[in-house]
Amino acid sequence: MPGGPLSPWRHLPNAITLLRILLVPPIGWAILAREPRLALGLVALAGFTDGLDGFLARRCGWQSRLGGILDAAADKLLLVTCFVLLALTGLAPWWLAALVCVRDAVISTGALAWRLLIGPLQPEPSLVSKACTLLQIVYLLGILAGSAGWRLAAMSPLAWLVAALCLASGADYVWRWSRRARAALR
């Protein structure tokens, strides 16, 4: 596969990200229909595409502003949908679903405020944010695997770790982007 920013393949990461967005409705249906094996497979595929699109974009120099925005939107749509629906079905705790939603609402509101007050935004996820997303996906996979009948260790400690990373990641975003906003508005 030829690389470089002018390659005809340069839109592949965005196409993979769009696939992740298109997976959200079938994942939601599978969760609500209590089809944990199907939901597990689809979430695993979505998690794989999350890693693949970023790897291809970085490795081949196919990063774009649109790709960064689509990737962030796809992650938020997937994770919020899954956590809320798993909480609705009693498979995940409501407090954790609420924390995931609040974190993403804070980040999205900050991004919108940046766009309105300062200008175009180039998403730059931090290491703690990437770790948070990864751990959320691992947690979802664990919950769905347990629901599908796999014997797993207790998910409660992992839930607390997800919560801690959500809080750390949210605080990191607020701190980093608040500093940048103050500097940009001076």
Rank of each mutant, 00 (worst) to 15 (best):
P8E: 13
R10E: 04
H11F: 13
L12W: 07
A15N: 06
T17P: 06
L18S: 05
L19P: 10
R20G: 09
L23G: 07
P26F: 07
I27Q: 01
G28T: 03
A33N: 12
R34N: 14
R37Y: 03
L40P: 00
G41P: 10
V43T: 11
A44Y: 02
A46R: 01
A46D: 03
A46N: 04
T49E: 14
D53R: 05
G54S: 07
G54W: 06
L56T: 06
R59D: 06
R59H: 14
C60E: 15
Q63G: 04
S64D: 08
R65V: 07
L66H: 00
L66E: 05
L66R: 04
L66A: 09
I69L: 15
D71Q: 04
A72G: 09
A73P: 11
L78D: 08
T81D: 02
F83C: 15
L88A: 07
A92T: 00
A92M: 07
P93S: 15
L96F: 09
A97Q: 06
L99H: 00
C101T: 13
C101K: 00
V102K: 02
V102T: 15
R103I: 09
D104V: 03
D104R: 02
V106E: 02
S108Y: 03
S108I: 09
G110D: 09
R115L: 15
L117K: 02
P120W: 12
P123N: 13
E124G: 03
V128R: 13
S129V: 00
K130Q: 11
L134D: 07
L140S: 06
G142E: 10
I143F: 09
A145D: 02
S147M: 06
G149Y: 08
W150S: 01
A153H: 00
A153M: 10
A159K: 03
A159G: 13
L161A: 15
L161V: 14
V162P: 01
A164P: 05
A168V: 10
A168K: 01
S169G: 07
G170D: 04
Y173T: 03
V174C: 08
R176P: 05
R176F: 07
R176E: 01
W177P: 01
S178H: 13
S178W: 02
R179M: 11
R179Q: 11
A181N: 07
R182S: 09
